[in-house]
Design a protein around this nucleic acid. Structure first.
Length: 388
DNA sequence: CCGTCACGAT
DNA sequence: CGCAACGGC
């Protein structure tokens, strides 16, 4: 396909809290994994907390038609961390690196926390910053601070070479009190060192959402699902897009979109940049091609495995939901019976204006209940949030 | 709360 | 195959 004229690039940034159940939901709602990206017209999707092990990757997840994927997976714990960037072939990066903050030996690079892709017009850094751990000890506070500092150093070096840089993902620090619900005392949330590391980053790279929404103090990106905090919008804004000035000038919009609560404890963000030229066709970069090579053989596990089935050995399984037997059994993190807010608290779950809209697909039977929820939740208006 | 995985029962 | 225990947030 010929490169199109410079157009608007839509990126989605989303901590999905496990890729496999999320893809299962994509397929049920949108007919295919790819269908999710198409439905929302995103050319680049930056996902965090995919929690994939390198050897658990399947062709269905890695080789989406029309997209390339770039993976950082944890080499330490399994079912932990992991970030993935999907890029449509029109924006196929000319270079990509995973877990590249240190010198190759660093413990910062062992947990699947960074995917860096070079899209010519800018370098995209998809990040999942470490959680410091339970207070009061916060055992990984130091690791987290070192990570944030190394992230800045890496981006600074790119910037020193004259590159535009876009850092996206879950940085695990809210920037200020106005980025958290008033019920939280900001001082109690993070240590001085974390704030310093975060503000060093923010000093160099603009928080795009905040830049466009200076007055908004009630839009958050993560909530404690155990306490139904999302229904009361008692959240924090820890997911970001940060960028250099040249890119900031190209920002058309940057919005938090309400993704279905049960799909992840985080909401997604959609960023639009204008005048970003698609990249001329080229061979996939090394990181991408080496991984895809693994999936050239037949007999790879198919998407059916994600529905609790052994790989359909004989069949060339497509991605259509209808073809996936057993789809009606596993409901997983979908809304079965909508998580009702506790009785002690008032108000039902707020309608969510920016909510991702309902699918076009006639979905499996099990999706009927939340199908309605989705439609009900698709409302106009701007103020995402109501106050209790 | 949400996953995953090891385990015992079939 | 279903469920308990556990770990992460």
């Amino acid at each position: 396909m010929e490169p199109e004229a410079a157009g608007t690039l839509r990126l989605m940034i989303w901590n999905i809290n496990s890729l496999v159940p999320t893809v299962r939901n994509f397929i049920l709602k949108y007919g295919s994994f790819r269908g999710f990206f198409e439905e929302h017209s995103v050319q680049i999707a930056c996902l965090q907390e995919t929690k994939m092990l390198d050897d658990k990757l399947t062709k269905d997840l890695v080789c989406l038609e029309g997209y390339e994927s770039f993976w950082a997976t944890s080499r330490e714990k399994k079912g932990y961390s992991g970030v993935t960037t999907y890029a449509s072939t029109a924006y196929s990066p000319v270079k990509a690196e995973a877990d590249c903050l240190g010198d190759g030996e660093s413990d910062l690079d062992r947990e699947g926390r960074v995917v860096l892709t070079d899209h010519m017009a800018f370098v995209l850094v998809n990040v999942y910053a470490p959680n410091a751990g339970e207070r009061p000890e916060r055992p990984r506070k130091d690791f987290k601070c070192r990570f944030l500092t190394a992230l800045k150093a890496k981006c600074d070096s790119l910037r020193a070479k004259g590159r535009e840089v876009l850092i996206v993902g879950d940085l695990n620090v809210a920037a200020s009190q106005r980025d958290v619900h008033p019920k939280f005392s900001y001082e109690a949330l993070y240590s001085e060192e974390e704030n310093q590391a975060m503000h060093a980053l923010l000093g160099e790279y603009t928080d795009v959402w905040r830049h466009r929404h200076p007055q908004d103090t009630s839009t958050y990106t993560v909530w404690d699902e155990k306490t139904s905090a999302r229904a009361f919008n008692e959240g924090l804004r820890i997911d970001y897009a940060l960028c250099t000035p040249g890119l900031l000038a190209k920002v058309v919009s940057c919005e938090v979109v309400q993704t279905p609560p049960k799909w992840s404890d985080h909401a997604a963000m959609v960023l639009e940049l204008r005048d970003i030229s698609p990249i001329a066709a080229h061979a996939p970069c090394a990181l991408s091609s080496s991984r895809m090579k693994r999936f050239n053989d037949r007999g790879q596990p198919s998407v059916a495995t994600m529905f609790g089935r052994k790989p359909a050995s004989k069949r060339a399984a497509g991605l259509e939901a209808e073809q996936v037997p057993g789809a009606s059994r596993k409901v997983s993190k979908q809304e079965g019976a909508s998580a009702a807010a506790p009785e002690s608290r008032t108000r039902p779950s707020a309608t969510a204006p920016g909510q991702l809209d309902q699918p076009r697909l006639s979905a499996a039977k099990t999706t009927a209940p939340e199908e309605q929820q989705f439609q009900r939740a698709t409302q106009p208006a701007q103020g995402l949030i109501w106050q209790p």
